[in-house]
Amino acid sequence: MTTDTIQPTPARARAVFSNEDFGLLRKAVMHYLKQPEVQDAPESVKYVNLFHRLGRLG
């Protein structure tokens, strides 16, 4: 005996951010990166990479 269950089709994914948001986020990350205490922090490389990825999206 098998039990067939109907799986509902998942709802279509909707964008969380608009194209304009990427520009704003990129500007905020750049402002953050210019802070003296952040420039020397080891995780600053991650923020630089984020900045570049945001530039490709927006």
Rank of each mutant, 00 (worst) to 15 (best):
A41P: 02
P42N: 09
R26P: 01
G55H: 04
V48D: 04
R26T: 02
T3K: 13
H52W: 11
L57S: 08
F17M: 09
V38K: 10
V38I: 13
L50H: 06
T2G: 04
D4N: 11
G55L: 02
L54F: 07
Q35S: 09
D4H: 12
L25A: 11
E20A: 12
V38A: 05
G23V: 01
G23Q: 06
G58T: 05
L25W: 10
H52L: 09
T2P: 13
K46P: 01
L33K: 09
F51C: 06
D21L: 02
D4R: 14
N49H: 12
K27G: 09
E43K: 06
V48Q: 14
D40Y: 04
P36L: 06
D40N: 12
T5Y: 14
V29M: 10
V29A: 10
G58Q: 13
V45M: 11
L54A: 05
E43Q: 11
V48E: 10
P10W: 04
T2M: 09
A11K: 15
L57C: 06
Y47L: 10
K27C: 01
H31L: 04
R14G: 02
I6K: 15
E43R: 10
D21F: 06
K46S: 06
M30I: 02
T3D: 10
P36K: 12
P42K: 14
P36T: 08
K27F: 08
M1Q: 10
L54R: 08
K46I: 00
S44N: 05
K34W: 01
R53I: 00
L25K: 14
K46M: 03
S44K: 09
P42I: 00
D21W: 07
F22P: 08
P8N: 07
K46F: 06
P36W: 07
P36V: 04
Q39W: 05
P42L: 03
E20W: 09
T9I: 03
V48N: 08
Q7C: 02
S44R: 13
L50K: 12
Q7P: 06
F17P: 01
K34V: 00
Q39G: 07
Y32V: 00
L57Q: 15
D40A: 08
D4P: 11
T5H: 15
D40V: 00
M1A: 11
Q7A: 06
D4M: 03
N49G: 07
L25N: 05
A15V: 01
V16E: 13
A28P: 04
D21P: 01
Q7M: 05
V16K: 15
K27H: 13
V38W: 04
I6L: 14
G23C: 01
R12W: 01
S18N: 08
R56A: 07
F51T: 04
F51K: 14
G23N: 10
T5K: 15
L50M: 13
Q7H: 12
H31S: 08
T5Q: 13
D4Q: 11
Y32N: 04
E20Q: 12
L33S: 06
